[in-house]
Amino acid sequence: MIPPIVLLTDFGLADPYVGQMKGALLRLAPAAPVVDLCHEVRQHCILQAGFLLETSRPHFPDDSIFLAVVDPGVGSERSILLARQGRQLFLAPDNGLLSFLHGQKASWWRADADASNASRTFHGRDVFAPLAARLALGADPSSLGRSIDPAEVVRLEQTWAESGDGCLDCAVLHVDRFGNCLLNLRIEAMPARGRTWMLDDGRTVSRVTTYADLAPGQVGLLAGSQGVMELAVNGGSCAGLLGFLPGRTFRLTCTERRP
């Protein structure tokens, strides 16, 4: 059975870019299922793309091929990475997008791709898609490039928020279409103490369990479905209310006194 190819890009859906990349995949590997993970990554936001890939891959079959193209260096000398962790394969630019695989038992290759006839501005269609199609048709990763040491791979430091002295220094990793702000704060790292927190601007944030626990316009902090804490407003956009975008950093301060 041909494995699925899972697409993650910052292309959006207003242009033909996603469709053309899918067309290339269907032409080269017509029996391969093609799944859209997300095409609304903020333009060039590599950390956001890496987070979405990391939190999504456990929900896919073991033999999935993840094709992630958030590539501000397209057409430059940046190389193309191929990685395998377990039975899942990952194809992406060498720009830090696959940083979450560091520290895991993964194999790495630097892909040898002929870009001589490719558009210098659209490697997703002309270079990445043909590589993914070859993998879907059964090509061994070692046949597509040379094995490399993980130390050779570009790595972006993903700093996870940690609590200390009643404060949490956080960053927004992703804003979903509902305006919920997904944070770099893993659920298991959230302090048990503290039902009320304060943002930098003095706004009160209440720790809740569900969106319905919030009054209209009230900002809440709750455990989301993606393994991290999120800021949310019931029936509204928290990101719009606070003016937050992916990459925004801020501090949460616990307003409750220690016992």
Rank of each mutant, 00 (worst) to 15 (best):
M1S: 12
P3H: 05
I5N: 14
I5H: 12
V6L: 04
L8A: 11
T9Y: 09
G12R: 09
L13I: 09
A14S: 08
A14R: 14
Y17S: 09
V18R: 11
V18G: 00
V18L: 10
V18D: 00
G19R: 06
G23K: 10
R27V: 03
R27D: 01
A29S: 09
P30S: 07
A32F: 10
V34A: 01
V41M: 04
V41T: 05
I46G: 06
I46A: 09
Q48P: 08
G50Q: 06
E54V: 05
T55E: 11
S56R: 11
P58Y: 14
F60T: 11
I65Y: 06
F66S: 02
V69G: 03
V70Q: 05
D71M: 05
S76Q: 09
E77T: 09
I80F: 07
Q85W: 14
L91G: 01
L91C: 00
L91T: 02
N95S: 09
G96R: 14
G96Q: 11
L98N: 10
H102W: 11
S107M: 06
S107N: 05
W108H: 06
R110I: 06
A111C: 08
D112I: 09
D112S: 09
A115T: 11
A115L: 06
S116I: 02
S116E: 04
S116F: 03
A118G: 03
A118W: 09
S119F: 10
T121Y: 12
D126E: 08
F128A: 04
A129E: 05
P130G: 05
P130C: 08
A133V: 02
R134I: 04
L137H: 14
G138F: 13
G138V: 03
D140H: 15
D140M: 15
D140N: 14
S143V: 06
G145I: 02
A151K: 15
V153A: 15
V154W: 14
R155W: 12
L156W: 06
E157N: 04
E157G: 07
T159V: 15
E162F: 06
D165Q: 15
D165A: 15
D165G: 13
L168A: 08
C170R: 10
A171G: 13
L173D: 07
H174I: 02
H174K: 02
F178P: 00
G179D: 06
N180D: 03
C181P: 00
N184E: 05
N184S: 03
L185E: 10
L185A: 11
R186D: 10
A192K: 15
L199H: 07
D200L: 07
G202K: 15
G202F: 03
R203Y: 01
T204E: 10
T204V: 10
V208S: 06
A212F: 05
A215K: 14
A215W: 08
G217D: 01
G217N: 04
Q218S: 02
V219E: 00
L221V: 02
L221A: 08
L221N: 07
L222M: 04
L222R: 08
G224S: 06
G224E: 01
S225H: 10
V228P: 00
N234Q: 10
N234H: 12
G236R: 12
S237M: 01
A239G: 00
G240A: 01
L241T: 02
G247H: 07
R248S: 14
T249Y: 13
T249C: 15
R251Y: 04
E256G: 00
E256S: 04
R258E: 15
R258V: 12
R258P: 04
P259G: 13
